[in-house]
Design a protein around this nucleic acid. Structure first.
Length: 288
DNA sequence: CCTTTCACCTGTATGC
DNA sequence: TGCATACAGGTGAAAG
């Protein structure tokens, strides 16, 4: 479930513990973890050896570590990926996929991923949304905390779409970083049902929704992120506490914090959506 | 071209 | 106890 706040927590950990260090060697334990690295595992390993790691960066749910020269280590945590700092001599984790060791003999950077939806790769840099980003993610939109994020452009692109507002929030080419949890929380804060057609939203309502998304993700970040189980952790293996502050997500039948009505769970794209039936009424006509 | 669906994974919880 | 099923869900390819 790592979404923008959780990934930012990890980025800060990498900034603190990895930036400036030199790679001694890397090991790949599961080919699926580097499936997006086209040249394969052997090239991945040889390309990393001896490289110096720069300052950790992030766009939406993607993280990257620039390398001396012009490429970068790009990572996505998927559903269950973890980037952990671990002492080099400690036993391999059950789901250890990639290990990067450093010349200073300090903690390894380990990519551990139970469900293998996440991946890491080494890639050239490209450019998108007003700044350099790794080539494979030039199609990913700026996230709402980036200085180049254009609120007006977001509103006009959102309204031009023939879709529902929750689908649009989850569309990483429109706005990045928002996943299922924070989409539901932002919609609740803005008083919108997720199936509302985007074309019918007013500009002020879109501004309110965007502000809500920023507020809920900023609040989550200040509490170290959200975790429902032990899968999402920071680089030291610790979970955040924001799940205590969620208004609707995962809270079926509990009272809405605003009006007291029982929260409902609805199925959406083979996953769950949570909302307040009173604060977030369904639109009267589907497809309005 | 745009929108929607589905495959990819494994561990945990639940039901029979 | 053991087996089957549902669920968690981000991404991008494939389908519509």
């Amino acid at each position: 479930m790592p979404e923008l706040p959780e990934v930012e927590v990890v980025r800060r950990g990498l900034e603190r513990w990895v930036s400036g260090r030199v790679v001694a060697h890397a090991e790949v334990f599961h080919p699926r973890a580097i499936r997006r690295h086209a040249p394969g595992a052997e090239e991945f390993v040889s390309r990393l050896k001896g490289r110096t790691v720069g300052s950790a960066e992030r766009r939406g749910k993607y993280l990257w570590l620039p390398l001396d020269g012009s490429d970068a280590i790009l990572a996505h945590l998927g559903m269950s990926g973890q980037l952990l700092m671990v002492e080099p001599d400690s036993a391999p984790e059950k789901h250890l996929r990639v290990r990067i060791a450093f010349t200073d003999g300090g903690p390894d950077l380990r990519f551990v991923d139970q469900r293998t939806f996440g991946h890491v790769l080494v890639t050239a840099m490209g450019h998108s949304g007003g700044r350099p980003v790794p080539e494979p993610i030039v199609h990913i939109a700026a996230d709402p905390f980036e200085a180049h994020f254009d609120d007006e452009k977001f509103a006009s692109r959102l309204r031009a779409k023939q879709t529902e507002v929750k689908r649009a929030l989850l569309d990483q080419s429109l706005i990045s970083g928002v996943g299922n949890i924070y989409a539901d929380e932002a919609l609740w804060r803005a008083g919108l049902h997720g199936v509302r057609p985007t074309g019918a939203l007013t500009k002020p309502k879109i501004a309110e929704l965007l502000a809500a998304a920023r507020q809920v993700m900023a609040a989550a970040l200040s509490e170290g992120g959200t975790s429902f189980d032990s899968l999402y952790v920071n680089v030291n293996g610790e979970s955040g506490y924001f799940d205590r502050s969620l208004a609707v997500y995962g809270r079926r039948d509990e009272p809405c914090p605003r009006c007291g009505a029982p929260i409902i769970r609805e199925s959406f794209m083979n996953r769950s959506s949570y909302s307040c039936p009173r604060c977030q009424p369904r639109p009267r006509k589907a497809g309005l």
